[in-house]
């Protein structure tokens, strides 16, 4: 019996979909059977982030509406053994799926997969309520900005009200240099305000843009820092104790010197 994890944030554009794609690909690399569910009905995105947009035949509303069997709608990612996508509908609106249908769908997926990861739409309306309906656990994604942290706080309150206790936090797009200069809230600042457990921190990284352009999750990029950050988060989800990545790689000169003497 697998577990259902919803990835949510409140605010849009903080990296929910990218996070979902990378956690899915990462968990599949560890040999797990994983299905990613795009719950953002009407604004489907997870398919393009994963590079699977040309292979969609059926979507989530075809499954809940009984137009096809669940198995027919699942798209197998050929690059990652064990990774599947259940795409959102692009032409329907958020009321096309009900929370009860979502619950039943999650129950069915749990029988077959180790991890069911749901990409939640932005906002706190019907789409959000659908996405969390069948979830066992929640991951809240935020960035170090006032608006994103404020919305994360609201979402944490709503998750608790829905009895989804102890959500864990991913801080995305942190810029260590700005934090060092006191121009960006630090990990500690954000944890202090939101008072929830930290699951991981992903540094701002151009490689995320580059790999998303190609439709390839950055988690498989051995050299990028964001890829490393996602790999660490994947292991923490599996229950391993992985220390937080040292983001403070220093300025250009110290990086250069460290490389010269073989420290990094």
């Amino acid at each position: 019996m697998g577990e259902v994890i919803v990835v949510t944030s409140g605010k849009g554009g903080v990296g929910k979909t990218t996070t979902t794609a990378n956690l899915g690909a990462g968990l599949a690399t560890h040999g797990h059977r994983v299905v990613l569910v795009d719950a953002d009905i009407g604004l489907r995105n997870l398919d393009v982030v994963l590079g699977l947009e040309n292979r969609i035949v059926y979507d989530i509303t075809d499954v809940t509406g009984g137009h096809c069997r669940l198995r027919q709608a699942l798209i197998k990612d050929k690059r990652f053994e064990g990774l599947f996508l259940l795409p959102a509908a692009q032409t329907k609106d958020k009321t096309a799926v009900s929370p009860d249908q979502m619950k039943a769908l999650c129950e069915e997926l749990k029988q077959e997969f180790d991890y069911v990861i749901i990409d939640c739409p932005a906002g706190i309306e019907q789409g959000f309520r659908n996405a969390i309906a069948g979830a066992d656990k929640a991951i809240v994604v935020t960035t170090p900005e006032v608006a994103a942290v404020r919305d994360a706080d609201r979402i944490i309150g709503l998750l608790e009200a829905a009895e989804l206790r102890d959500p864990r936090l991913i801080i995305n797009r942190i810029r260590p240099r700005m934090v060092r200069h006191g121009d960006m809230m630090s990990i500690e600042d954000i944890i202090d305000i939101l008072a929830i457990d930290l699951l991981g921190v992903v540094p701002e990284d151009e490689m995320v843009v580059i790999s998303t352009n190609r439709g390839e999750p950055v988690v498989q990029d051995e050299r990028s820092r964001s890829g490393q950050a996602y790999r660490n988060i994947v292991r923490r989800i599996k229950g391993e104790a992985v220390p937080m990545m040292n983001l403070d790689e220093g300025g250009f000169v110290s990086r250069f010197l460290r490389r010269m003497i073989g420290l990094s």
Binding site: E145, V146, V149, R150, V179, R180, H181, G182, D183, M184, M185, S186, D189, I193, G251
Partner: peptide
Amino acid sequence: GREAGGSKNVAKERL
């Protein structure tokens, strides 16, 4: 690398 802007303190207080 000294505390130049410190605009994060403004952000924290507003938050």
